[in-house]
């Protein structure tokens, strides 16, 4: 048991870090927007936090709020620029932002260490990681039942109807971006602490695609779906490697395809849960 724990503790750690990225992606998705900008927020939070930790020797507890805040600020700026675009174009713009992020990471050597990368000689106990994730979960849970959560759902389901109900779409989506930025920035520094080394490749398109996939896989209509998706997506390659070592990634892709086709609303689907409950309950 102790061995099993030791063997898979880093997998659990990465699963939790990925859960932050997935939640960040979910935050914008829940307000009806597809955005890959989480990667950019994570890069800012990660590099800035790592620099503070290395050069000013700040403890991780102080660094994390700074990372989250910087992510949120950047997200606010991104929201100001991007919310003028309609949905398809915003997805494309956020993808462009990810590509630019890598170029900046390669060239802004003072912040990122450039091609040499950046060593982060700090580590984080897993229970701290779990505790932070728990706090974020509570925040998402409270949010989903709040006025904001309901308004966001309305904007996502039908923006025109939401507008006639007097829901300020632009403001709801800006808030969604800020939440996404804060959680993404936090995820960025947590990934840095898990890897203990950052390079321009650390925050790139792979994170964007796997996290979107994780959210949709887990279920994009409930915040818990993001976490389930992230865990499945982190564990799947490890499991598949044991089963089909040569075609592990191919099997990964096929799993994703099958889930999307047969479970299009993801593993955690509040509507299906409600329907099941309704069916079980005595209706007459």
């Amino acid at each position: 048991m102790a061995d099993f724990w030791a063997a898979y503790q880093s997998t659990l750690g990465f699963a939790m870090v990925n859960a932050f990225f997935a939640l960040s992606t979910y935050a914008v998705l829940s307000a009806g927007m597809l955005s890959f900008a989480t990667v950019t927020f994570a890069a800012l939070g990660g590099f800035l936090g790592a620099q503070l930790a290395v050069h000013l020797a700040l403890p991780p507890v102080l660094v994390m709020p700074v990372s989250a805040l910087s992510g949120a600020l950047l997200a606010y700026v991104v929201a100001l620029l991007f919310l003028r675009l309609d949905s398809h174009w915003m997805a494309l713009a956020s993808l462009a932002l990810v590509l630019i992020t890598r170029v900046v990471a390669l060239n802004a050597t003072a912040l990122t260490g450039g091609v040499n990368g950046l060593s982060v000689p700090l580590s984080l106990p897993l229970w701290v990681l779990a505790a932070i994730l728990a706090v974020i979960c509570v925040v998402f849970w409270r949010l989903s039942a709040s006025w904001y959560g309901i308004a966001a759902r309305a904007v996502r389901e039908d923006a025109a109807v939401a507008a006639t109900l007097g829901i300020p779409q632009r403001r709801i989506q800006t808030i969604a971006f800020i939440i996404s930025g804060a959680v993404g920035g936090l995820g960025g520094i947590l990934l840095a602490l898990m890897l203990q080394f950052l390079s321009p490749e650390t925050y790139f398109i792979d994170i964007a695609f796997t996290m979107i996939a994780a959210v949709v896989l887990g279920g994009s209509y409930h915040w818990a779906g993001a976490i389930v998706g992230a865990v499945v997506f982190t564990a799947l390659p490890v499991l598949l490697q044991a089963v089909v070592p040569d075609f592990e990634k191919v099997a990964n892709g096929i799993c994703l395809l099958l889930i999307m086709i047969f479970l299009p609303r993801g593993l955690i689907d509040p509507r299906a849960l409600r329907l099941r409950r309704a069916r079980k309950a005595p209706s007459r």
Binding site: A6, F14, M194
Partner: peptide
């Protein structure tokens, strides 16, 4: 992939 390499190494470390 660095993240995968770290997980692999942890699994080897755990295997006595």
């Amino acid at each position: 992939d660095a993240a995968r390499a770290i997980q692999d190494i942890h699994q080897f470390i755990a295997d006595r």
